[in-house]
Every structure is written in structure tokens, then in C-alpha cells.
């Protein structure tokens, strides 16, 4: 019980009405609002800028080379006379590396997420998860070196004869595995977030019916967390498709239309990386190929994102 002059009381009789207009116009608010809008607009402007810078030179490219020849041609030799601009070997190279990466990363990443979310003691999780996330921050050039100087020799040593010839010095498998290593933390961490967000009540409900932990994880938590899990995989695929350094260092530079993991390939990103830093004159058709390939990469990622959004809408189980 405070005294009346300590506790601010309502208006007493005879006191003048309180002023409701602002003492000074709040310009600061408007400035802050403007700054925030600017920051939000920056990312949109950047995306638009990238699109324009890709589309412009690509138009020049497609005036010279037909889109059909580009998209469905199976021979990539832009600097040999006569040049051939069939991009399929590069697309297959990228997809091959991505595929081997995913075969490695998705099961391990999801298993790690299930362990962290459903089995690990909180103390174990509080150590493991940050460690895993640090893994995601390793520079890819270090990973590329690791693939080239450690994984490839290891694969060559361990290669069982019945699978045919062993891996080349440059091969898709080594690059794919190390890219997989790179995206395991992405898949594990984001999937774990999604699974941890599933209400404890659903787990308890299933456990009370006599479901084992594995069943609770796979039949209840997993479907409920599906949208986050798919998002993590899509992000992983995007990283794998876009990864440049590892494929450049470990997968080689031979346009090769094959999913055979032991052979050397040329990935789309590796082509862009090599060509952009090479000695091809700007403004030439050879130089414009970079933009055409870049645009195709952009479209591929976009289409994949759209498909995955559709899939998630269809299959996920929404909890409230």
C-alpha cells in the first residue's frame, strides 16, 4: 500500500485535462523505418541485379546458339573449332556429384538429427550440435584439398576389384562424398530444429500407446517435421549444386556425360569458375557461355525449390 503521492493516481477533480498530442514530431521513427525498408529492399535488389546480369549476356549467347542445341546437345567443347555448346555433359556432371553427395549425406544427416532430437541427453546435445554446426563453416577450399589429397587416394586403395576400374585421380565420387560431408551438418541441424519443434504431447501420446522410441521418431515426429526436413535437404541440394571449389579440385575438368562415379567430370560451377578466371576475352561467345550456364543453374535451383514446396504441402502433417 503506497501513499497517494508515490503511487500515481487517476486525475483528481479540478486538474486540467492531459495533453494527447506529441510534444515534438517523432522524426526518428520515420528515419528508422526508412532504414529498415532499405535493408529489406537490398536483398531484393541484389537478386534482381543478379538476374539482369545473367539474362543480358545470355540473350547474346542464345542469338548465336539455339536453345535446343544448348539444352539437349551432348557435346561440350566451346573453345575447340568448330565449337559445340551442348550443356548436358555439364548438367549430368553436376547431378552426378550432387547425387553421390546426397546418397551419403541424407541418411547420415537424418540419422544424426533423429539421434540429437529423440535420443541424446540434453547435455550431450548441447555439445554435439554446436560442434556439428562448426563443421558447416569449414572453408570449401580446405574440403576440396581434403577430397583430392585424402579421400581420392583412400578410395583408390580400398576400391574392390569386382566393381571394375578404380577411381581416376579426378573423379565424381570423391567430390560427391566430400560435398556430402559438407551438407551433413546443414541437414542434421535444420532437421533437428524441425523435429525438436514437434510438441512433446505427440511423443507422449505415441509412447503411451506402447510405441518404441524409433517408432515415435519415424511415425510421429518425422511426418510432423517433414516440411523442415525437406527444407534442410533442399538447402543441402542447393549447396551441393552450387558448390564450386570441391568439384573444381577433386572432380576434374573433363566434360563427360556419365553417372559413373569413378570417372572425371566437369560440373557446371567448375566450368564457370575455370572459364571466368581463364584467358577468354570478354564479349566473345565463349565468354557468354558462362552466363548461359549460370542462368541454367539458377533456373535448376528455382525449379527444385518449387517442386519441393509442392511436395511438402502435399505430404506434411500439420500439427497445431
Amino acid at each position: 500500500m503506497g501513499s497517494p503521492d508515490v503511487v500515481s493516481s487517476g486525475r483528481l477533480a479540478g486538474e486540467p485535462a492531459r495533453r494527447l498530442s506529441a510534444a515534438s514530431p517523432r522524426h526518428g521513427e520515420k528515419v528508422i523505418r526508412g532504414l529498415l525498408i532499405l535493408c529489406a529492399a537490398l536483398s531484393i535488389a541484389t537478386t534482381t541485379g543478379i538476374m539482369i546480369s545473367l539474362v543480358g549476356p545470355s540473350i547474346g549467347f542464345f542469338r548465336e546458339v539455339s536453345a535446343i542445341d544448348f539444352l539437349f546437345g551432348t557435346e561440350w567443347s566451346p573453345v575447340i573449332q568448330p565449337p559445340s555448346f551442348g550443356v548436358l555433359p555439364l548438367v549430368v556432371g553436376t547431378l552426378s556429384v550432387t547425387l553421390w553427395g546426397l546418397i551419403f549425406a541424407v541418411p547420415i544427416g537424418l540419422a544424426a538429427a533423429i539421434y540429437l532430437s529423440e535420443y541424446a541427453h540434453p547435455r550431450v546435445r548441447s555439445i554435439l550440435k554446436p560442434t556439428l554446426e562448426v563443421l558447416a563453416g569449414i572453408p570449401t577450399v580446405a574440403l576440396g584439398f581434403f577430397a583430392f589429397s585424402f579421400v581420392t587416394p583412400l578410395l583408390q586403395d580400398l576400391w574392390p576389384g569386382f566393381l571394375g576400374d578404380g577411381p581416376n585421380i579426378f573423379n565424381a565420387l570423391s567430390a560427391g562424398l566430400v560435398i556430402g560431408l559438407m551438407i551433413v551438418p546443414i541437414i542434421a541441424s535444420i532437421s533437428e530444429d524441425a523435429m525438436s519443434a514437434v510438441p512433446a504431447g505427440l511423443r507422449e501420446g505415441a509412447a503411451a500407446l506402447g510405441a518404441s522410441r524409433m517408432r515415435v521418431a519415424l511415425r510421429v515426429v518425422f511426418p510432423a517435421a517433414l516440411s523442415g526436413i525437406v527444407a534442410s535437404i533442399v538447402l543441402g541440394i542447393s549447396r551441393a549444386i552450387g558448390e564450386t571449389m570441391i568439384v573444381l579440385m577433386a572432380a576434374g575438368a573433363t566434360p563427360n556425360m556419365t553417372f559413373n562415379p569413378v570417372e572425371s567430370i566437369l560440373a557446371m560451377t567448375a566450368f564457370i569458375g575455370v572459364t571466368a578466371t581463364g584467358d577468354i576475352a570478354t564479349g566473345t561467345i565463349e565468354y557468354d557461355t558462362i552466363f548461359a550456364v549460370g542462368l541454367l543453374l539458377f533456373v535448376m535451383t528455382l525449379v527444385m525449390n518449387l517442386i519441393s514446396i509442392r511436395l511438402v504441402r502435399k505430404y506434411r502433417e500439420v500439427y497445431e
Binding site: L202, G205, A206, A208, G210, R219, P223
Partner: peptide, 30 residues
């Protein structure tokens, strides 16, 4: 133990599945 001693919780916690699948879930897993 939990297959013989069931539990109903404070907040209704149906699975985010169909009504049918909610009931069928338990019998299926055991």
C-alpha cells in the same frame, strides 16, 4: 508396460493424421 497401462493427457494430443489413423496407429504398431 505402456501397452497395458494407457494414458490420456491434459491437453488433447491427437496425431496430425486422419481420425481413422489416430485410432489405428496403436493397434498397428503392436
Amino acid at each position: 508396460v505402456r501397452r497395458r497401462i494407457g494414458m490420456v493427457f491434459q491437453k488433447p494430443n491427437p496425431f496430425p493424421k486422419s481420425i481413422y489413423d489416430n485410432i489405428a496407429y496403436g493397434p498397428k504398431i503392436i
